[in-house]
Design a binder for these strands. Structure first.
Lengths: 132, 132
DNA sequence: CTGAATCCCTGCCGATACTG
DNA sequence: CAGTATCGGCAGGGATTCAG
């Protein structure tokens, strides 16, 4: 039983949602992009793919990321079922963030995004411009 | 010569760009997300994955998409090397849009995004809510 | 038919300050 | 240590209008 909704190599799935004519949250692609949406999101996920982290560890790993955006992202990823919050009793408060199984499955997704972006970088402006 | 930058199954590539601490345009993931960035973008790509289209055909396929955003998206996808513009002489002006080879390689990327979003839809609000 | 230009409104995100 | 509250600047995108 193919409860996997995919299988077409050149086209897109035969799911009705593959034929929507407007950006709807029902579309699986939109769901994924919504989970990864916003600045810093993929970097937070990357950090957590390497292992669970405390809030302060995330801040240390991404120094330019502000508190507000970090907690925004963690909340967003929590809503998306990507990140789990593990609070421990006692003082000072210690909280660990970890990917859920669903969150770990973002690994291949980020890999696909990486692969495409790493492949054949465009000569953006000029000819033979050694862009860096 | 492994000019493919990937290979780690559970982690991310050993490319230095995998260790950036801030959202930089150099990161391949950011490159891909930038190409797909913005509302309607993935739907435009989906239409073109099905075959080349005229401007008016894209408008017809995505009726709620405004001219401004459509031409924005086509320009953005052109910059990203995803879409090619094929203008033909004569009157009335006829232009066809088609994916480049690079653009066609977005198929697997969208597939990965679809797969993740289609997998284990979250019981967002209530228990056993048969969302459909 | 194929777009580009303008206007305006909304939502994001960064900085700062404050709380449990 | 682990966040929330508030404000302001800026870019995204929708409707409309104009041009090639």
């Amino acid at each position: 039983m193919t409860h996997r909704t995919v299988g077409h190599p050149a086209g897109l799935p035969d799911d009705p949602r593959a034929n929507v004519t407007a950006p709807t949250p029902d579309c699986p692609v939109e769901i994924t992009l919504a989970a990864l949406h916003g600045r810093w999101t993929t970097l937070v996920v990357r950090e957590l793919l390497r292992g669970d982290r405390a809030y302060s560890e995330l801040r240390a790993a991404l120094p330019a990321l502000s508190d507000k955006v970090l907690s925004d992202r963690l909340a967003q990823l929590g809503e998306a079922g990507v990140v789990e919050r593990d609070r421990r009793p006692g003082w000072p408060p210690r909280v660990r963030y970890a990917l859920t199984p669903r969150g770990r499955r973002l690994g291949p997704v980020l890999q696909a995004l990486w692969d495409w972006g790493a492949d054949t970088p465009p000569a953006t402006t000029g000819p033979g411009a050694a862009v860096r």
